[in-house]
Amino acid sequence: MLLILLGVLVLHLIILVLLLVSTAANAWTIGSTGSTDLWYKCLTTNGGYHCLPASNEDWIQAVQALMVLSVLFCFFSLIAFLYQLFRLVKGGRFFFTAVFQILASLFVMCGAIIYTVMSPDRDVSSSFGYAYVLAWVAFPLSLISGLIYIILRKRE
């Protein structure tokens, strides 16, 4: 049982790191003239590297909010898991932790979908970057983690 709990904890920490990197990294869209993320649009012009704030459009603000919420809910889920690990009665399930983790997975999925559909910077020379891919990798991992928390029972 200790190995299962340790494995779930390590999976949760990996998901949290994936969400943090995907939210903060400057590589959601990479093109020949620069890169774009949730917060800045960086361009390479005349040998210089210039970063401008992201546009004030509603869709990018929605993606920013959803990604920040996913990080927060994943962190709250980790805190709830650690609390429940020591305070939950024998035979109890980690429902509170599971709900937070599943909400984090839904937030990251919605943010990535909105970014996919609404991103105007996509042209032939650009592609999605590693931060975008990390967000999509974090979605099923956090969903699976949430389902594991639903199934998991506390044992002595």
Rank of each mutant, 00 (worst) to 15 (best):
N26W: 12
S142F: 03
I60A: 09
W59G: 03
G111K: 04
V68M: 13
T29P: 07
L78D: 10
S142Y: 05
L152K: 08
F75I: 02
A135W: 07
Y115L: 09
P120G: 07
I14E: 02
Y115F: 09
D121T: 13
V71Y: 12
L11I: 00
P53M: 06
R87Q: 15
K154P: 03
S142R: 04
A62C: 02
C110K: 12
V108H: 02
S35C: 12
S142N: 01
Y130M: 13
K41N: 11
V133H: 05
L38N: 04
L9H: 09
F96C: 14
A138D: 03
V117F: 06
M118G: 08
F107Q: 02
F94R: 06
A62N: 06
P140Q: 04
G31T: 04
S105P: 05
S105Q: 08
I144E: 07
R93K: 14
L43S: 06
I151C: 10
S32L: 12
G31A: 02
L82C: 10
F81D: 00
G47Q: 03
V68T: 10
L13E: 08
W136I: 06
L18E: 09
L85R: 06
R87G: 11
D37L: 10
V71P: 01
N46F: 12
F73N: 04
D123Y: 14
K90F: 13
S70E: 08
R122E: 12
G48S: 13
Y130H: 12
G92I: 01
M109I: 08
L20R: 05
M67S: 09
A131W: 00
R87N: 15
L78R: 02
L9F: 11
T116S: 14
S145Q: 07
K41R: 14
F75Q: 03
V63T: 01
I30F: 01
C74G: 12
A98H: 07
I14K: 00
I150W: 10
V99P: 01
V108S: 06
L52H: 13
I15H: 03
L9C: 11
L20W: 10
C110Y: 13
A24D: 03
V108G: 00
Q64C: 03
G146W: 02
W136D: 00
V133C: 07
S125T: 15
I114G: 08
C42K: 07
L141Y: 05
C74Y: 08
Y149I: 05
F81P: 00
G48V: 13
I102P: 07
V10D: 10
Q84E: 12
L106Q: 01
T116W: 14
S77R: 00
I15T: 11
L16K: 08
A104H: 10
R153A: 07
S55W: 10
Q84V: 01
L69G: 10
L141D: 07
L141I: 02
